[in-house]
Design a protein around this nucleic acid. Structure first.
Lengths: 334, 334
DNA sequence: TTGTACGCGTTATCAT
DNA sequence: ATGATAACGCGTACAA
């Protein structure tokens, strides 16, 4: 394996001190343009790149941000990751990727690992740890952004990005009602999910605004998968065959619902209107194409990283709470 | 921000030398069980975690592998990433994620960054740099795994994982022929893609084995997207309306093809049989469900990282060339 | 404008 | 079994 050239190799060849090389590499003043250029040339010629490790030890900054998410294989998160990585690249940061599989132990291990690696900032997507367990890390990390998670108090170096699920759900119910639907079911995620909770509140508000009674038997808590959506709707139909609209936790669930409708001989959207959430690529590819609450996932990731960068350079960020408005996309399923 | 406790903090409290603490933390011999346990307790109590940065500087090992791919937002790659990260986690490694957007400059920047960060190993997925430009890095990285890319020569610390696109394409053509198809079109990727090249050869071999003439007008080179697949089929139909089977570069393209068939009033699979490749989640969700060449992407990622780990600890890996066999999945589209 | 000495937190080497 | 000292490669403070 090739041995990396070090700063002293450059200094020796250029016949200058280590400091001059350091200054040249970091564009610091205190060098004649002439020697600066000469050093740069030699460094380039030697293929010298300052060791990030040594630099990090000296400066206590790693130029690395940690990206923690339940599962990068899910399109919702992979698109966030793409946005975050792009922003990191633009700002000269590296990104550590860690999956938690929604396992609290693994999430804790992830945070400890990030701390051990002295990352400059952390982006935590849908964390499952309690606020209490999370809090210590806010003090350990120079900056943290929480995605899809609220923070009761205000902490100087912590920002949050959340989707306005509440308003989104309200809009969906209103749309259903305006189109003559009356038995509106809701298949939501686990009761512990913040998104679920917010959606549920919006759903109830929407119902109330339309003078429709809230019927608990029309609500199903399920894991956010296609199979679960399929099964949930079968359950709903057996209990309440007159269901004429279904709002789903996300698009994956909605696809399962559409399939269940077809299986049971119901036409979408004539007999049953279906609306999902997130607008993953699949949504526009399936038939009937899925109406959904579009969320700009790339933008969330990109913004999450920008927030980190800004928290890092500017301690006084006034707007540390971002609320993303989903856009209601009407396609064929409703 | 909290100040991290250092090894000397632990040493001072435990009234031992730095080395004893180091030995205790790393489970190294040369300590009485008694003092070892005492040190461990104190370390735990202080919340001490050895700094990865300082450790890396001293050992020249970062316990980090670099994962470079065109676009984590694409399901094919995100599933590889999940597998790689899981394996890294199991083996105590961190993962640097970098997207290249198929931009050679950005890919080069990625490799330079990994070098600068002194990663222990690199997983390069579908790299677009020439072998010549890639080669220097094989010498700079302790270990490298190439995914979806061949390596003419044999290099001790480099392994490759490739999908047997050639055999896969042959199987598809044979299946088409056995089911009475005679005008078999092929929508492939960019001519520069290795997968495309291998598929094309398999396609021609399959044709020859069935005594069918190769007709260049039945082959379309397109970007690997649904829109491109849709457009490609329209072109094909206008040129050769009698096409009765289409093999597609991947599932995304195949979905576009199916849509184009429906648009032009052709039934799938009665009038036109369609087969894709990769088996992304979408494939089983779309209607008609897509027949495809299933590739275990998670496994590819997991194995890529295992190879890195083994290359790192065991310099003499005899089988450094892995060929993945796709599994032919028959669903509804063919 | 340029250079010297030291510290960052850890491990490796060589003692005791 | 334990400890002192010197790296590892770079940046910072201060000196020349």
């Amino acid at each position: 394996m090739n041995k990396r050239p070090t700063i002293s190799d450059v200094a020796r060849v250029a016949r200058v001190s280590l400091m001059s090389v350091s200054r040249a590499m970091n564009n610091r003043p205190g060098l004649s343009d002439e020697t600066r250029q000469r050093i740069l040339d030699i460094a380039d010629q030697l293929g010298y790149r300052p060791s990030s490790v040594a630099r990090a030890l000296a400066t206590r900054q790693t130029s690395t941000i940690g990206l923690v998410m339940p599962d990068i294989a899910k399109p919702f998160f992979s698109q966030i990751a793409r946005g975050a990585e792009d922003s990191a690249y633009e700002n000269g940061y590296n990104v550590f990727l860690i999956n938690t599989a929604e396992d609290p132990e693994r999430e804790k291990a992830a945070l400890d690992s990030l701390w051990q690696n002295e990352i400059d900032g952390a982006i935590l997507c849908s964390p499952c740890l309690s606020q209490e367990k999370l809090e210590p890390y806010f003090a350990r990390f120079p900056a943290t952004v929480l995605v899809n998670r609220e923070l009761g108090v205000s902490i100087a170096n912590v920002a949050t990005i959340n989707v306005d699920d509440h308003l989104g759900a309200q809009k969906v119910v209103r749309y259903f009602v305006e189109n003559g639907r009356r038995r509106i079911a809701f298949i939501t995620g686990p009761a512990t999910s913040v998104s679920s909770q917010r959606q549920l509140i919006g759903y109830r508000h929407g119902l109330k605004a339309a003078n429709l009674a809230f019927d608990p038997s029309l609500v199903e808590h399920r894991p956010p998968t296609t199979e679960a959506g399929h099964a949930a709707l079968k359950t709903l139909f057996s209990r309440s065959p007159e269901v004429d609209a279904v709002f789903c936790f996300n698009d994956l669930v909605a696809v399962g619902v559409i399939q269940a409708c077809i299986d049971t001989g119901r036409d979408v959207p004539t007999d049953v209107a279906v609306i999902g959430a997130d607008d993953i690529p699949l949504a526009s590819l399936v038939r009937p194409a899925l109406s959904t609450l579009q969320v700009d996932k790339y933008q969330i990731g990109h913004q999450a990283n920008s927030l980190i960068v800004r928290l890092l350079k500017n301690d006084s960020l006034t707007r540390r709470t971002v609320l993303i408005q989903p856009e209601f996309i009407i396609r064929e399923s409703a």
